[in-house]
Design a protein around this nucleic acid. Sequence first.
DNA 1: CGCTGGCACTCCGCAGGCCTGAGTGCCAAT
DNA 2: ATTGGCACTCAGGCCTGCGGAGTGCCAGCG
Lengths: 351, 351
Amino acid sequence: MQEDRRLAVLRAIVEDYVHTEEPVGSKALVERHGLGVSPATVRNDMAVLEEEGYITQPHTSAGRVPTDKGYRLFVDRLTTVKPLSAAEKRAISSFLDGAVDLDDVVSRSVRLLSQLTRQVAVVQYPTLSSSTVRHVELVALAPERLLVVLILSTGRVEQRLVELTSPLGEEELAALRSRVLLAAVGQRIADAVTALRDSVPQQPEPQQPDPEQAPGQVTDPTGAVVDALVEAMSDHRSDQRVAVGGAANLARYGDSFDSAVRPLLEALEEHVVLLKLLGEAGTGGLVTVRIGAEGPYEELSSTSAVSTGYGPEDQSLATLGIVGPTRMDYPGTMAAVRAVARYVTRILDEA
Amino acid sequence: MQEDRRLAVLRAIVEDYVHTEEPVGSKALVERHGLGVSPATVRNDMAVLEEEGYITQPHTSAGRVPTDKGYRLFVDRLTTVKPLSAAEKRAISSFLDGAVDLDDVVSRSVRLLSQLTRQVAVVQYPTLSSSTVRHVELVALAPERLLVVLILSTGRVEQRLVELTSPLGEEELAALRSRVLLAAVGQRIADAVTALRDSVPQQPEPQQPDPEQAPGQVTDPTGAVVDALVEAMSDHRSDQRVAVGGAANLARYGDSFDSAVRPLLEALEEHVVLLKLLGEAGTGGLVTVRIGAEGPYEELSSTSAVSTGYGPEDQSLATLGIVGPTRMDYPGTMAAVRAVARYVTRILDEA
DNA sequence: CGCTGGCACTCCGCAGGCCTGAGTGCCAAT
DNA sequence: ATTGGCACTCAGGCCTGCGGAGTGCCAGCG
């Protein structure tokens, strides 16, 4: 049936083009792949594929190049899962096993991912919102200066300095400490926030947690401390922390410098943009692929993103993935992204 | 005197070339700068400068371009301090004043620096070795699991998980905590390490602080805790932590992509390489300039580095600077680097 | 003795023209 | 439906010629 063959032709075009980086012609196609038909037949198929929008020619009488739509079809229907080689698997575990803390896990992952895929890798730090409070410590640096340290289950540590309006005695501090611990430890962030708020006696809730006004109006230190904690927990700045690696792989772009590398290079510094680019993370082995203009940014219309979520079970902590040219090895990249996400999840689970 | 004029010519060449990015000829020179002589005279001077190795021509009958040696002379003798504009000063303080913690200071600095200089900026995190211990906290997560948190004067927080061989009671923990606090708090890192070592009763010092062997052989938990602390303090991994920003500025290189951008892009991921590239940091307003092949890396022979140390007083905590093409605005860049270092130092001092 | 104007020379970069080869579309034949 | 054949198109490499920017050198001038 000729419909099947047309898909085979599309697949062959994508594979060849990804490999050779050059428009692929009918003759070369039948030679390199074992489709048992003549170039002329392939040409007819190509004409149809072009009409349907899956491929184009850069100029008349050059070979064909897949369009975004072509890649999309390829990814959705023509991709066969490409298992990682044993060597790659070994590389992954040896790479990640030595990690000592959260920062280390993230930075190793990003490096690993960029090496496996030879693309620019992006790893988001585990989100605060889905982790739980492991410990809170109050340290009196001076009678009126309190250091509040917040330790989360993911290993993240946040600290805030609190200036009190009146000195705090040893016993008061101990009381405050145990009160806060009781309210927060073991809770998920969202619950801890409400529990903490409730633990402040009679005081009206401050609507906006403005750090400037907080120390002024309180006499009971609980308010100030709770404010600092709540602020640290809802610090969306750190929700958007990401690590980026493998920028050197951009050098392989070679051609299309201005159109592709420049905007991407700019995007790499804008972490918010990167996260948006990776998009909604699929969980549980589900890998999301964004191709070219499907993404949210005009200037990045010639780049694709391959991403997935990671984190224990079905509640994904954060996103991780790669960004690269639309012309990339999707099957291999998707396999690598999925594998790394799995390993990272496991590592975080153990810790 | 014609020696003076020759230097003026060199200065003019450097300034023009930096500005126009094109080899500069004798005629354009006399027009753009007010040297009151004829092109012919300038040509003679150029011939001499070329003979002495300060300038070259890319090919016969093109204008002249400064050599590394030329830039060096320019930087050493022809540079006049270029004070920052009021707007720039305002930008600096408004940019840095909102920083909430160490990470924030560093990431803001790197962004600021890259925007001011329009180059790739590099900021090393404050070194552990010259900071003091602000606090140590021991948290019992479980009877045999202890979380050790180390807080340094620079605002850095390190944490380690310690597995004990036997459960630890509440009073024992309190005793241990006060012992450790007594030994370490307020000390500089190096002193704290020895003080901590001394505080462990009779036990023979472990020569290499191998984290694998530590928990096995100790019955007194002090040993394990001290080991963890010492390990955290002497963690050289974090000595080499740097933040990089402004990679998008590489896009402006335009020409000379392979020769300049690619190796630099690769270097950006190798933090050790970057630090070596910045070189010895001058302290106290002293800015170090590395021009082209003066640097330690063959492949980076067409890039320069401008750097300086920052940190309180004369003891510099770490290095900060920029990396860019040899063809750069040295006076402006040096001024920006110096200014940012000064401000960062002040911010850190206040905290 | 240093500066200057003049002049011949060099050579890059660009534009135009030619040619080749890869690849196509279409058509008639199977 | 597939195929071989054929005419057509067009990017890219190569040569050529030309203009212009810039130089080096020399003779003259203050």
